[in-house]
Design a protein around this nucleic acid. Structure first.
Ligand SMILES: Nc1ncnc2c1ncn2[C@@H]1O[C@H](COP(=O)(O)OP(=O)(O)OP(=O)(O)O)[C@@H](O)[C@H]1O
Length: 1127
DNA sequence: TTACTACTTATTTTT
DNA sequence: TAAGTAGTAA
């Protein structure tokens, strides 16, 4: 365990100021990306415990994701030890609420065994309800899908509106005629409320019915967790009396209900610290309210702000590019963000004809960077950030083809699979017999010949008798009530038996993992899968993986600590409040609400597969994730494909600025290298359409000041660049030259690259003759890529350049129309699929000749080329092409488009996952490779580049002059760790009605109408300057000398090894799929089979294991390469 | 009434 | 790509 006060010395003055800020003065730490916000928050927690003597259990730390919570725990273990860390109330708002609601459920009118209803089930419920309103909707010409209905309900809940509130509002609105309302909106320039009009009526009604169904099922959805949490803390002050400090990370993304939660949890201590960055608010679609910053100032008078202005994460070039992007948000308040690192390579911006080539580039470039960095970069240093998950397909297969191990973070996907849901539904039903969605899911799994009609009848009967459908079945089977129309008594006897057996096991305290195994045996689930699913083997693997997950949860469960903590809390409560707040009623408090089964089910509902256990994560893998999931994380190299209109911003986006911020968040994840790529075409229902670059990037390119932020040329990883990389990667050791030489040689021998190297097919295409592709295009005034240094050995033995780049000069912005000297073709014809197009060396005016197999779309495009562009299909004017004859042309106009398959063939040899060797001609069987080798190379031509090397530090924006540094940092004795200038001056602002330097657009705080205001009461708590209690008597504070238990500090909570406790072997390799000969009962208890190859694991297992979709190609010899054209 | 096969359709972002 | 849906045989 490290002494926290030693570590404090590494902070810069502003950071230190934030950490040591007086606990009782509410604090907002507002700072840009990479400024150490999370680090400061973590240190502040440690400081509060170590130096301010707050007991750990009195601290509430709220993170945005479970993963963030786990990471913070890991960091804290090193600072304050495992035991103390375990006592801190840390987690997402949802997880924290669930925890309290289990215990105090009765106080808010629910049962402690409530089931968390996931979005899928909610959707089904809403869909059913919507059907009942089908006609009304049709009559009123309203189309409403369950998805949007659910998000409407969610929006209402996020604002704290109950169904009754919504109905009341609808009634209010009904007093006004449609016309009056329209007029009012016109007059006041207001947007219609979602509860207005006929639709509002339906929404409120469905909301009400939905709530009724959930309550009837003893179930809470995600939003309910928060709403009932608020209810609990609002009604029961003693539920939050333990809390002496609330800290909230990613505050800019909290919604109204979450804010209310924070307010209530902090109601007794009034001690709050939040960190956030308005520029990184990307959850507006989930009702996040940036106004919460203002609300906090309103409700916590005396709130002070501290700004952190030093970025420690990224190179200056990356930061400059990020600033160029975010600056387009005109409503944004300008902020200072200083770099701590050298400029580094320019972020790369590249265009590609189609998605597959783009993905191929990403894969090839990752490989190249690993080689050219001499292994300084490894797979886990790379992330591909996507706007949405569906984009991962192409990337995954490209990485797979190159044999690059990868993992896809796809949120909750694993738990959405049918085999997982089946098993969970059984367990849910065992834990909560009233949970109807689980009942309907599993009554007929495996088939008991109980179909739709029968189930409907059971539900109907349940409603009549006011009991749960499970109870109906039980009573029928027991003979207590008559059977229903399609008789069921015989068919469901076994079902009831299963549930009862399981119930018994659970009550006897059987662990969730064992319960699952028992269930699998009881219902012969393996057999059922084999009968019903084609891919039963992979599904069975998934079930096994669920067992592993259960074991993981079991290992992370609090054992005795929980009881100990409660005793400590009670003692403290007594000490602090005496009888003032009243006692808990023993009848109402559920002491045994945290059963292992319940905790497991809850973890299944609340966790995402982002939280891959440490041992799996540490296996080197490229990460593929959405930009949203990347929040708060960092990687050495970030690649963002599909930076096109319709994706960034999404064509469905309601708030374009939020999309801009999302791109900003994605870019600022990068430490050393950043790549944005885009395609020039896209497929729309089989038709190839031109695709324009993201408006956000087009704007950066058209602005003279920011024009040079992105470059087309790839980083050479010169010594200087490697040194910069080493620096941003916290001093990672530089590779030695021999290593580089060897790796580069190996790379050259085995790999191909669409852009890099003399024969690269998609290299510098604008200079090449028109070749029939929607080619990568030269951007106006883009820095001209300098010639890649040539290496000896004619493309065989390549070494990265040791010298620095030649000095680069400013080049005047170059637009079309300039007759430029054209280089001889640099694109060898071998890469232009011979079947598609030929280009003519001497005649460079862009003749497109369709080859035999050319698709109709290719010829269509070719002929379209002669027509003027029409109906909005033009490529963005920001990216005109300079044709070889110097005209400005449109990509779509001039290029015949290849089919995906044709192009794919040129990126990676189909069927080869390691790339072609030198001998394997890229155009296998086409006999063109030799010709390529003999083709004369283009003369080396160094063109001036407009890239200006700025002196560092790069001050990206002038510091606000209006910055009144009212509170100076306390005298700092040691020198700061701020490596480079300029050290940021902490700026602490006193509360001021019109803060002179607001960090968000001025917002008039709205009176909170939904929740009753908390009475501001005189503070009666302990004096924070001194220990609240004599240290020796502090109940929960574990002595810190006892550090042996946390030396490594890493085996906390969820980091349990992923192996079965019994044999130590990975338990995912446990029971193989029960063969038809083996009896079902022996299937799950049979000894573990030898571990299968990673590639043998099912897709979903790999996903949950963070192995990506199919990564076997990397290490696994059994890996079967993809068939050409297959997917 | 249920079970099976073939076709359709939806995929922004997440707790 | 995988889940839901419609249509048909048993
Ligand atoms: N004083 C410091 N000296 C050196 N490195 C620091 C310092 N403060 C923070 N860092 C490093 O900067 C990086 C970013 O820190 P952190 O993730 O806490 O930033 P953040 O402000 O939370 O970023 P974001 O807003 O993007 O989530 C981390 O790698 C961290 O170790």
């Amino acid at each position: 365990m490290t002494n926290i006060n030693e570590l404090l010395k590494d902070l810069n003055p502003a950071q230190l100021q934030a950490v040591q800020h007086s606990p009782q003065i509410p604090l907002q730490i507002l700072a840009g990306p990479g400024s150490g916000k999370t680090k400061v928050l973590t240190m502040r927690i440690a400081h509060l415990i170590t130096n301010c003597y707050l007991p750990p259990w009195s601290i509430c730390a709220v993170t945005f994701t479970n993963k963030a919570a786990n990471e913070m725990r890991e960091r804290l273990v090193k600072l304050i030890g495992k035991d103390n860390t375990g006592l801190i109330k840390m987690g997402t708002f949802h997880a924290l609420c669930a925890k309290f609601l289990r215990r105090y459920a009765k106080y808010v009118g629910i049962e402690g065994n409530f089931t968390v209803c996931d979005a899928d089930e909610s959707k089904k419920i809403v869909a059913k309800l919507l059907k009942q309103h089908e006609e009304f909707l049709k009559d009123n010409n309203i189309t409403m899908k369950e998805g949007s209905m659910l998000s409407m309900i969610s929006k209402l809940k996020a604002k704290g509106l109950t169904a009754d509130d919504a109905l009341k509002k609808v009634a209010e609105f009904k007093k006004e005629s449609d016309q009056e309302r329209t007029l009012r909106h016109l007059r006041d320039q207001t947007k219609p409320d979602i509860l207005e009009g006929k639709l509002g009526h339906v929404i409120a009604t469905v909301y009400k019915e939905y709530e009724k169904l959930l309550r009837g099922s003893n179930s809470l959805d995600f939003d309910d967790l928060l709403l009932f949490g608020v209810k609990l803390f609002a009604q029961q002050k003693k539920a939050s009396s333990w809390c002496q400090h609330v800290l909230v990370d990613e505050y800019q993304d909290t919604n109204t209900t979450q804010y209310e939660l924070m307010r209530y949890i902090a109601q007794t201590s009034r001690c709050v610290t939040i960190v956030g960055d308005p520029d990184q608010s990307i959850y507006g679609w989930r009702s996040a309210e940036i106004e919460n910053l203002a609300n906090m100032k309103r409700d916590f008078p005396g709130t002070q702000e501290i700004y952190l202005e030093q970025n420690y994460r990224s190179t200056a070039a990356i930061l400059a590019a990020s600033m160029a992007i975010i600056s387009q948000d005109k409503k944004r308040i300008q902020k200072t963000l200083n770099t701590s690192h050298p400029k580094g390579p320019n972020p790369v911006l590249r265009a590609f004809p189609i998605e597959q080539v783009e993905a191929g580039f990403i894969a090839a470039e990752i490989k190249r960077l690993v080689a050219f960095s001499g292994g300084m970069l490894n797979w886990s240093d790379f992330v591909v950030l996507l706007r949405f998950n569906a984009l991962s397909r192409t990337i995954e297969s490209a990485l797979q083809k190159e044999g690059i191990p990868n993992r896809v973070l796809a949120g909750h996907k694993f738990f959405e699979r049918l085999e997982i849901k089946d098993v969970l539904a059984y367990l849910q039903l065992v834990d909560n017999p009233a949970f109807v969605p689980a009942f309907t899911r599993v009554v007929n799994v495996p088939s008991r010949t109980v179909g739709e009609k029968t189930v409907a009848e059971l539900l109907h009967r349940a409603e009549q008798l006011k009991i749960s459908p499970l109870q109906v079945v039980e009573r029928i089977v027991d003979g207590n009530i008559p059977d229903i129309k399609p008789p069921v008594k015989k068919k469901l006897g076994n079902f009831v038996g299963v549930i009862r057996d399981m119930r018994k096991f659970a009550n006897e305290g059987m662990s969730p993992s064992k319960l699952i195994q028992a269930l699998l045996d009881l219902i012969k689930y393996g057999e059922h899968l084999r009968k019903t699913q084609l891919d039963y083997e992979s599904r069975w693997d998934n079930v096994q993986e669920l067992i592993n997950f259960a074991v993981e949860v079991e290992n992370g469960m609090p054992v005795a600590a929980e009881k100990q903590m409660r005793d400590a809390e009670d003692a403290a409560h007594e000490e602090l409040w005496g009888d003032d707040l009243g006692e808990w009623d023993a009848d109402q408090v559920e002491d045994r609400s945290d059963t292992p089964l319940r905790l497991f089910l809850q973890a299944s509902m609340l966790s995402t597969d982002t939280e891959t256990p440490e041992d799996e994560k540490s296996k080197e893998k490229v990460t593929i994730a959405t930009c949203h999931a990347a929040k708060g994380l960092e990687w050495a190299v970030v690649m963002i494909p599909a930076v096109v209109d319709g994706v960034f911003p999404s064509s469905r986006a309601e708030d374009v600025d939020e999309e801009l911020r999302l791109l900003y968040v994605a870019c600022t994840r990068a430490q050393g290298l950043l790549y944005l790529t885009h395609t020039t075409t896209r497929k729309v229902s089989g038709e190839t359409m031109p695709q324009s670059i993201s408006q956000f990037i087009a704007a950066v390119r058209s602005e003279s000041k920011t024009r040079g932020t992105f470059a087309e040329d790839l980083p050479t990883l010169s010594l200087q660049e490697r040194e910069t990389l080493s620096k941003v990667l916290n001093g990672r050791p530089l590779p030695d030259e021999a290593e580089i030489t060897q790796r580069v040689a190996e790379y050259q021998r085995t790999s191909r690259h669409p852009v890099w190297g003399p024969n690269a097919p998609f290299k510098d295409l604008p200079n090449a003759p028109v070749n029939g592709y929607g080619v990568p295009q030269r951007y106006p005034a883009a820095p001209v890529p300098e010639q890649h240094p040539r290496f000896p050995g004619n493309g065989r033995v390549l070494l990265p350049p040791q010298q620095q780049k030649p000095p680069q000069q400013q080049k005047p912005p170059q637009y079309h129309n300039q007759s430029r000297q054209l280089n001889p073709p640099q694109v060898p014809p071998m890469f232009i699929a011979s079947s598609l197009v030929h280009f003519n060396d001497t005649h460079r005016s862009g003749i497109v000749r369709n080859a035999p197999q050319s698709t109709s779309s290719a010829s269509a495009s070719a002929s379209a080329a002669r027509k003027p562009p029409s109906n909005g299909l033009t490529v963005s004017t920001a990216t005109p092409l300079t044709s070889s004859s110097g005209r400005v042309v449109n990509a779509a106009m001039t290029r015949a488009l290849p089919t995906g398959n044709d192009l794919r063939n040129w990126i990676v040899q189909p069927g080869s996952h390691r790339g072609p060797t030198a001998d394997e001609s890229p155009s296998k069987g086409k006999g063109k490779a030799k010709a390529v080798e003999q083709r004369p190379r283009s003369p080396v031509k160094l063109e001036p580049s407009p890239v200006k090397l700025e002196p560092r530090p790069v001050k990206l924006e002038p510091p606000s002059a209006a910055l009144p540094a009212v509170v100076r940092p306390k005298g700092k004795t040691s020198t700061t760790a701020v490596k480079t200038e300029p050290s940021s001056t902490p700026s602490v602002h006193p509360p001021h009605p019109q803060a002179r330097r607001p960090t968000f657009p001025p917002i008039k705080p709205e009176p909170c109408t939904v929740f009753p205001p908390i009475k501001a009461e005189p503070y009666t708590g302990p004096d924070w300057g001194r220990p609240a209690m004599p240290i020796g008597r502090l109940p929960g504070l574990v002595k810190m000398e006892n550090s042996s238990a946390c030396v490594s500090g890493l085996q906390l909570h969820r980091s349990s090894p992923r192996s079965s406790p019994a044999d130590g072997r990975p338990s995912s390799s446990g029971p193989s799929f029960p063969s038809s000969s083996s009896t079902a009962s022996s299937s799950t208890s049979s000894p573990a089979a030898p571990s299968a190859d990673a590639s043998a694991k099912s897709t979903a297992v790999k996903r949950r294991l963070g192995m990506g979709r199919a990564t076997g190609g990397y290490t696994n010899k059994k890996f079967k390469p993809m068939m050409p054209g297959g997917s």
